[in-house]
Nucleic acid binder design. Structure first.
Lengths: 224, 224
DNA sequence: CCCGTACACCGTACGTCGTACGCTGTACGA
DNA sequence: TCGTACAGCGTACGACGTACGGTGTACGGG
């Protein structure tokens, strides 16, 4: 045990990179990524702003670490099932996690170097696909396709102005439809109406597309 | 012609919401969205920072308008071909546009109310799907699936640290592989090696997944 | 021809941001 | 006992978004 770790244990409430980043994630979840400032984060930790810089070289590094925490939360594909079930599980988990941390999507664009959890995750997914019989390049294709779907879905979901089916009905009636003249947007009106009566469940919507993609990938593997 | 328009014509270099937003897009393309500040934007337009607020209520509104310009650039699905070709064209166009404006992806998360170009675009896509024979709810499913793929792909592409196949080879050899121990990441190593020898073309990668998705959607329409 | 009004545009100022820099205090090995 | 190392802090600087109160100039009505 290093002197530093000992100190932290002794003080009981000492800081650490872990504590800093975890609190940053909490803050971003609560207030959005724009509400995350070093001062506010320090405040939430009962510390001065500059103290954070002992654990994090810059805000950029903090954001990178936050992204990696997000990846840690995503379930790895289980090894004991068929590849489709495994992929479904990890995709569903990824969607849940990204919905829980909507700021993560927006951050991806800017941070280009993957953290360790991200790498572990990618490795596990690739392993699953390869073991299922996908040739190397086909596995990367499948990887891109699945990741695109997951990230893109999360992105769209994050930009939805409602969370529940009831809110959707509310907004459709009071906000969308009034600004969508029937003659100019006949199809959007039709869709909105259909969605309101049928209800809208993002989880179900997600599974629909996911299963379509998984089925489309199936014939591309060389079943050993 | 209003007095205001006349003034602008007269002065020749007068501002306008259009000019402000277009220049903002250019600036964001050049310097990234973090490099876009009201002061810098004003500087690029040869104006004072506060002058911008005559054309834009806030920076938020500016960002919304920028997103809508991006949507304007995306080709609408042509009406005279089969639905798959139409969808492919607009998806390819969307990818190109989003690659040209990488900041747009990151912005989507925060802006929840679609602008007019966004609505027009959505209407056209929905129309294309409905006319191709997709039932209402199936059309919205297809819409979500396709948009997820396009946005997610653009997101991944934007976070790639290289632009060309050569750069990929360079980075793979000098950056990725050194930090990917063979025993811990066997599959990532294998993939990286395969990608380097095979070359990596994002456009081709995109088409691959896109066509897979389109083909998977085909049986879901009720061919009239 | 003149003046009042309207409006495009600007300068200043405030609070907040990220963070460079230098200081304090305390816990430890010698 | 003392020197060192390091966790944590306070201050300060430049840049940010933007509220607020100007200033100039082009126009319509007298």
């Amino acid at each position: 045990m290093s002197a530093r770790e000992q100190r932290q244990v002794a003080s009981g409430a000492g800081l650490s990179k872990q504590r800093v980043v975890v609190e940053a994630v909490r803050l971003a979840d609560r207030e959005g990524v724009d509400g995350l400032s070093m001062r506010r984060l320090a405040g939430a930790l009962g510390a001065g702003a500059m103290s954070l810089y002992h654990y994090v070289a810059s805000k950029e590094e903090l954001l990178d670490a936050m992204i990696d925490i997000v990846f840690e939360e995503i379930e790895l594909p289980p090894e004991e099932t068929d590849w489709q079930s495994a992929m479904r599980r990890r995709a569903v988990s990824a969607r849940q996690v990204l919905a829980r941390h909507p700021w993560a999507n927006g951050l991806m664009e800017s941070r280009t170097s993957p953290g360790p959890a991200n790498l572990r995750h990618h490795e596990a997914v690739t392993a699953c696909l390869r073991r299922a019989g996908f040739p190397v390049l086909m596995a990367t294709h499948a990887n891109w396709l699945l990741d695109s779907y997951v990230y893109g879905f999360a992105l769209q979901e994050a930009s939805l102005p409602f969370d529940t089916a009831d809110e959707l009905a509310d907004m459709a009636e009071n906000v969308f439809l009034p600004q969508l003249p029937l003659d100019e947007f006949p199809y959007l009106n039709e869709s909105a109406a259909a969605l309101v009566t049928a209800g809208f469940d993002p989880a179900e919507q997600f599974i629909f597309g996911l299963d379509l993609v998984l089925a489309a990938l199936e014939p591309l593997r060389a079943s050993a």
